[in-house]
Simulated assay, not measured.
Amino acid sequence: MKILAVDTTAAAASVALCEDGFLCGEYYVNIKQTHSQTIMPMAVSLLKSCGVEIKDIGLIAVSAGPGSFTGVRIGVAAAKGLALPFNIPCASVSSLEALATNLIGTNAVICSVMDARRNQFYNAIFENVGDKLNRLTPDRAIAFTELEKEISDIVLSGKRLILVGDGAKICYNNLNGRTNAEIAPFNLRFAHASSVAAVGAKLYNAGKTISAEELIPFYLRLPQAERELKRRKGFDV
């Protein structure tokens, strides 16, 4: 089965085409161009380069969040636009799980961290054993002080811990050498659509696909405009 995967949840944008566990091709740019201008041309160009038509795709996998509010919306909208004309099933993938999938084979605890601003990170923690990725926490928005304690406890238990994601360097610098946490190398640190495809394949095999109509963004937090509106109305956000 051919899987087309999309990720626009952070500064990088990528699309990948996989078939039966084989990566046919992947386009990746991390130059802070507007995702709305790049993602669809990238998808069309990748399919053309691989000699594949959209009607040949059996699954569209997309990082549905958390991440940049605008980026998440663009990725989900692109996936819906590609899937709807041919009723292609979709896989709604956690961007944090996709990041952790970059580090399969490390046999480490993997701490996925995305910069959520406002002194918070979008975070989830996983443990990799062989080719398995076991989730230790749900996807969440967490303050650095709370996350630092969890990281310290894991490292003190004797386990190797690797930070991955666009918040990895910020988190690592904030730790300031207080733990032996590692940071993923740059080629594995950021989101890749090929990892989104790998998670999408697992969801497909588990019967957890959805229709394009059911596909929605996963934010974790309210968008800034909604937060500001609630503040003006006196709500604590």
Rank of each mutant, 00 (worst) to 15 (best):
E26Y: 13
L23A: 10
I88C: 14
G25E: 11
Y219W: 04
M114Q: 12
N102M: 13
Q33K: 05
I110K: 04
E26N: 08
S157Q: 01
E182D: 05
N205L: 06
K159G: 06
T179A: 03
A206T: 15
P217H: 04
M1P: 06
F69K: 12
Q37M: 10
T70G: 02
Y28W: 10
K132L: 07
I74T: 09
A13S: 08
G25S: 09
H35W: 06
G207A: 04
I125S: 07
Q33A: 03
V29M: 11
M1T: 07
I183Q: 15
A98M: 03
V29I: 13
H192C: 09
I125N: 08
N107Q: 02
L84A: 10
L229I: 12
L175S: 04
I154T: 01
A16Q: 04
A201H: 11
Y27E: 14
L215M: 05
I74D: 15
G207N: 02
F121I: 00
L215W: 04
K208E: 14
S14V: 15
G200H: 10
D56F: 07
L99D: 03
R232N: 15
N174P: 10
A225Q: 13
V113F: 05
A198W: 13
S152W: 02
A141W: 08
E150I: 01
A91N: 12
L84H: 14
S63N: 14
T137S: 05
L220H: 04
Y172W: 13
Q224I: 00
C18V: 13
A206M: 08
T137M: 07
I170C: 05
E146C: 00
L99I: 01
C111K: 01
S92V: 05
N102K: 06
L46R: 09
F190Q: 13
L17R: 05
T38N: 06
T101W: 09
V76T: 14
E53V: 11
N187Q: 09
E182Y: 01
G58R: 01
A5G: 02
M42K: 07
A12M: 05
S94R: 04
A198L: 08
N30Q: 12
V129A: 04
V93E: 12
A77K: 07
I151L: 00
Y172H: 15
M1K: 12
C18A: 14
N180I: 00
D115L: 01
T8V: 08
E19Y: 08
N174I: 15
K202D: 01
H35T: 14
L156A: 08
L222I: 05
K2P: 12
R178M: 08
Y219P: 00
F186I: 15
T137K: 03
T9A: 06
A225Y: 09
K80V: 02
S92E: 06
L133M: 05
T9N: 11
S195K: 05
S157T: 01
G158F: 01
G234N: 11
D139R: 03
F86E: 11
I104M: 03
D166M: 02
C90M: 05
L99W: 09
K48D: 12
A191N: 11
P138R: 09
Y27V: 15
A5K: 02
P89Y: 13
I60V: 10
L82G: 15
L47G: 08
T34D: 12
F144R: 03
F186E: 14
